[in-house]
Structure formats: structure tokens, C-alpha cells
Write a protein that binds this DNA or RNA. Structure first.
Lengths: 354, 354
DNA sequence: ATGAAAGCGCTAACAG
DNA sequence: CTGTTAGCGCTTTCAT
């Protein structure tokens, strides 16, 4: 069995109080006593039991992290940021992913609460529906939402301007000459952030008098995507010449599906995603997208939470800046002509001007 | 302050022992007592303090997870599997990523040990160098390595046959007519598994009398890759016609870099990765790769760890099956001719026969 | 500067 | 069936 503070005390012929003081550097300890204690600790390989300490003090130096899925790199990046910041402040993470399962969400938060995490960082499926933020607020447990876009700013949140970004995407696409816009949203459609992105996008389109973008909802990524897109692109004259996808993963799949339908991106259709996941920059064509500073968002959320724990009062909502990257997957609209029926293989790729 | 077991006991006019029995369903409690206790619990919103419980019992129902990086989806997938299995067994995860930093590795493991996790699931940078497995073994803390490929099987490990897979890749490439093979490895080269993959690959090549594949080592993914590859592909006659990358992320970058150098994959160069990350199937061309059952590996590791905790003795090493997927990024070798200097844009893509 | 002792919230004998 | 009580390992007054 691993040595306890009592073992150390005995071996050093001091009281446990002294050992405790030495270990935590709280209160004076004479030099020679310190020497003996240090020796005992090393001999015994003593490491203070954090569980016992946590029970004694009233905190755990532990943060709960709950996100929908690690599958999406955007969350993985945020967790990396959370991890970095938390560790550098002496906190360790209790982590769970919920797979967008509402019940799991509350179950997992309850468990984390049982472990008495000092605070929680979470992105819930839909912050306008989830009971969790209110539950946390009532319980008096510090927390901050990340990525979520509550319609009212009553919960601490780190996010980007999803509406504004959606609007910018519309502007950019219109600027490239596109007139028939579409949006494709995945499981995220039932999510506050996807909603916001769509609203901004549709507004942007409306502002230019374009007819409302069609919204294509897809349930699962892989096989259905092609089937969903096929009928739409059977009629090229009416099909969107530019597609805004609610996230990068989806955008990548859409590009693939479009390719398999014989359509070239960006020559035939422009595609733009959301998130700015790293892999997008390595693709060919590179992925046009709205970049969220995910890692930074993770850090910011952690910092805010820690500040809150320290009693500082922080701004309720922090909007981090996003960046629109017009990668190669988005290009100028080309006028449709009967020629579009001919599968010309010229690779005149449009490249963004720097 | 949140209610304690004592508050409940008082309100229900019973002893704490009875409340404890009721909560943990250990020992009989009369119906009417149960009724009162339940009422008190609900009224007070009592939730047992897991920290206190953990101190009392000698376990924490907590598992430590340490992996190099969440940046690589392959780890994210494994963590998802760990999360699923652990949660279904009532365990929660303490998570940290180390960014391949050796010092961080031991620091983080120490912290996890301080929190008295019941066991650890980890992939260390290089299990043949890391002190951690031995440290854990000596400390008597249950653990299992995942993805690692220790040269001697003295640590519980869940992995795939990296050597065999590397060998198969060589065979497959040779079967496609390739004679000049190359391997490109990233930060992973200082890793046991990348080593194993390379060994298998080189052996496979040697078996067919091919000259030893060149090994291209790259430090960072993004910009340097092109610079590294450029001089090699300046001389097409000697440059590898097929590249085996130590992981999928790297393979995707290589394909991108090659493209920017004016080389087409798979027409000019075949590229095959390792891991089987999901995004690979959505690319165009789809990524050829060795699929590891990452999610399953995470689950298997967790199950094995839990079994070990339960006292069952498990096989030291468990090798899960991998699958070679010849995606579109790997195709038949084309004989070089002076024509290769001409940038012909025919899109005659090779597709794997099912 | 150091020790004694009372908790932190819960579990688990041991009595009754 | 239920209550008493002694820990679990550490922190923290309060004395000395």
C-alpha cells in the first residue's frame, strides 16, 4: 500500500500537521525538520492523496468537460486548449462525450457534479432547450458554455458570432457572383449554432434580393448524402451554385459526394464549410470555411471559468473573432450554358487572390 | 451548501448508516424507512459526494486516460471508445493529452496517480523508452497501453500488428507494379509503432528484391512538406512511385503537397496511409490506408483494464485485426516515359476492383 | 516551530 | 432492520 502522511510523520518523528505544512508550504517548518521530512517522503515515495485532500479542502482542482463528440476535430481542438490551460493552472480534467444524447448529457453532468468538479465547461446540443445550464446556475456550480449560441445571454458563453459569420458567407458567395445559394446542415440542424449560421446566411441572401436559399437537411453523413444531392443536382439550372455547409466535416463529405455525381468543386459548385479544422487546408481543393479559433476558445473558456472560481466577475459572453477563409473550394459562379452537359476536363482552377 | 448524508439522516430521523444503506442498496431497509429516506433525499436534492465515498472505499471508479494528442482523429476515436465503455460500467474518465512531451507524460501520470485513478489507459510516445509502463508496473497500478508496440511483450497492450500491416502495404504496392517505394514518417518516427510499420514495410520490399525504400522524415506537417518533397520529385525516374505514410493525417498532407508540385495521385504517385480515420473515405481520391479499429481498441482496452481490476487475469497483449483498404489514392504503377513531362489532364482514374 | 484533535462526507463493521 | 462508531488521508484551527 502506498505511504500515507502518517507513515511519513512517523518516519520523520514529527506530527502529520508538520508534514502537511511542509508539503503544502503553508506555515513555517524549521530547516532540520524539513530535512527529515523530505528524507522520509523520498524514502517512502510518498505522494499526497488528492482525494483526501479534496475532501478536506472544499474543492477538487478538477474541471468537468462535456462535449457532444470527439469525432469532430473542432471539439478535439477545444479540448486540447482546455487541457493546456487547465493543466498549466494545476487543474485536471474529468471528461465525457455525450454523442448528442440529451439524456446522456444530464446523466453525465450529474456524475461530474457527484465528483465535485470545481466547474464545468460544456457544449450542449442546443442551449435553448437543454435544462443543464439552468440546472447548473441554480446549483451554483460555475460553468461556461462553449460553441453554444443561446438566444438570450443569460449563461456564460464563449463563442463566435455565428449569425454574422453566416451573413458574411452569403456576402462572399454573392460577391463571387452566385445567385442560387443553398445550405446543407447535418445533425447540427437541431443545434443553436447551426440555426444561427443559417439565419445569418439567409439574411445575407435576402439583403441582396436573392430568393431564399434552400436548406438541405441530412441525417447521416456517408451514403445518404449522395442520394440527397442527386435529385437536386439533376436540374442544374435550379440547383444551388454554392453550398454553405454547417460544418467542415459535412463540407468535405459534400465535396466528395458532388465529385461522385460528376460535379466539380469549385467549377460547378462552390462549397464552404464552418469550423476551420486543420485537415481542410491540406485538401485539394483547399476547403473554404469560417475559421473558429477552437483551441483559443478552449483556453478562453477555461480561463474564464478559473477566474470565476477565483471570484472575479467576468463578462457573461465572450465572442471570439472568426475568419472567413475563401479556400479553393469556393470560386466564382460560372454562367450555365448548354455546355455544362459536356464533361470538359479542363482544370482551370480558380484561385483566391491574396 | 449541498446537503450531506447527515442532513438527510436528520430529516428522515434515521442514522446515516441507514441512509447509506438505502442509497447504495446494501443491506435491508424497511419499506417505511425507505419511504422517509427517499422523501428526505428528494426534498434536499441530496447527491452523495463521490469524493468522500472514494476516500472511504479504496477506489475511485475513475480511469486515467493519457494520449499524445487529440489532434489526430485516431486518438479521438479511441477516447470515444474508452468513454463509451467506461461510462457503461460506471467509470468516469480523467483525461490529459501530452503533445508528445516526455516530461509532461510522467507529470500527468503522477497527477492522475495522486487522484487515485483505479487504472490507466495510455499511449506513450515510445513504449520502449518511456519509464512510465515500468513505473506503473512497480507501483502496482493497473494499466494498459494502446496503440503502442513494445518490442517485448511485458506490458498489457492493445494494438494491431503494425509490422504485419507494413508488410502487407509493401505487398499491395508491389502487386500494383510499384518498384520504387518510399516511406514518409512524421513526428511519429520516434515512435514504436511507426518503427514497426517501417520495419514491416522494408521487409516486404526486401522480400521482393526491391531496393530499400527511402525513408523521408518530416518534422512538421504543413509548409515543410512541399519543400521536402520537391527535390525528391525533381528527378522523377528515381523518386518513389508509391509512398507509405506513417499515418493518415500525414498521407493527406502528402497528397496535397504532391498536388501542389503538379503531381497527380494516384496517376503519378500512389499514397497510402495508416489509421483509417473517417475523413479519408470522403476525400477525392479516397484515401488508401490500413484501418485500425480505433473505437474498438478503446473499448477493448477499457474492458481489459476493468477485467484486470476485477481480478481476472487477461492475456498480456491483444492484437486487434486491421484491414487494408486500397482506396483511390493508390493505383497501378505507370511506366515512366518522356511523356511524363507533359501535364496531361486526362482523368483516367484507377479504381479498385471489389 | 510543532503537536493534538476536530473535522471533510461517506462506508462498514459491530452491536443491539 | 437500525444505530454507533471508527476510520479513509489530509487540512486546519488552537494550543503550547
Amino acid at each position: 500500500m502506498i505511504a500515507t502522511i502518517r507513515d511519513v510523520a512517523k518516519k520523520a518523528s514529527v506530527s502529520v500537521a508538520t508534514v502537511s505544512r511542509f508539503v503544502n508550504d503553508t506555515g513555517r517548518v524549521s530547516n532540520e525538520t524539513a530535512f527529515r521530512v523530505r528524507a522520509a517522503i523520498n524514502e517512502l515515495g510518498f505522494r499526497p492523496n488528492a482525494v483526501a485532500r479534496n475532501l478536506s479542502k472544499s474543492h477538487s482542482r478538477t474541471l468537468g468537460v462535456v462535449i457532444p463528440s470527439l469525432n469532430n476535430p473542432v471539439f478535439a481542438d477545444a479540448v486540447a486548449g482546455i487541457n493546456a490551460e487547465a493543466r498549466s493552472c494545476g487543474y485536471t480534467l474529468m471528461f465525457t462525450s455525450t454523442d448528442y444524447n440529451l439524456e446522456d448529457e444530464v446523466r453525465t453532468v450529474s456524475t461530474l457534479l457527484d465528483y465535485r468538479v470545481d466547474g464545468l465547461i460544456l457544449t450542449v446540443a442546443d442551449s435553448n432547450i437543454s435544462l443543464i445550464p439552468d440546472m447548473l446556475k441554480n446549483a451554483g456550480v460555475p460553468y461556461v458554455l462553449i460553441y453554444n449560441q443561446p438566444s438570450t445571454y443569460q449563461h456564460p458563453t464563449i463563442t463566435v458570432d455565428n449569425i454574422g459569420a453566416g451573413w458574411e458567407v452569403a456576402q462572399a458567395l454573392i460577391g463571387l457572383g452566385h445567385e442560387r445559394l443553398g445550405m446543407v446542415a447535418g445533425q447540427f440542424l437541431a443545434s443553436d449554432r447551426a440555426d444561427a449560421r443559417r439565419d445569418g446566411f439567409i439574411n445575407g441572401a435576402a439583403e441582396h434580393g436573392l430568393k431564399e436559399p434552400i436548406v438541405i437537411e441530412v441525417d447521416f453523413v456517408s451514403p445518404h448524402l449522395e442520394k440527397t444531392l442527386a435529385p437536386i443536382y439533376a436540374e442544374r439550372e435550379t440547383a444551388p451554385s454554392a453550398l454553405f455547409c454547417s460544418n467542415d466535416l459535412l463540407a468535405i463529405s459534400v465535396i466528395g459526394a458532388l465529385g461522385r455525381l460528376g460535379l466539380d468543386v469549385p467549377k460547378d459548385v462552390s462549397v464552404i464549410g464552418f469550423d476551420g479544422i486543420a485537415v481542410g487546408t491540406h485538401l485539394h481543393p483547399t476547403l473554404a470555411t469560417v475559421i473558429q479559433p477552437s483551441y483559443e476558445m478552449g483556453r478562453a473558456a477555461t480561463r474564464q471559468l478559473l477566474d470565476r472560481l477565483a471570484g472575479k466577475d467576468c463578462p457573461m459572453t465572450k465572442i471570439l473573432p472568426h475568419t472567413l477563409r475563401i479556400g479553393e473550394s469556393a470560386g466564382p459562379a460560372t454562367k450555365l450554358s448548354p455546355a455544362f452537359l459536356i464533361n470538359s476536363n479542363q482544370k482551370k482552377q480558380w484561385r483566391p487572390s491574396k
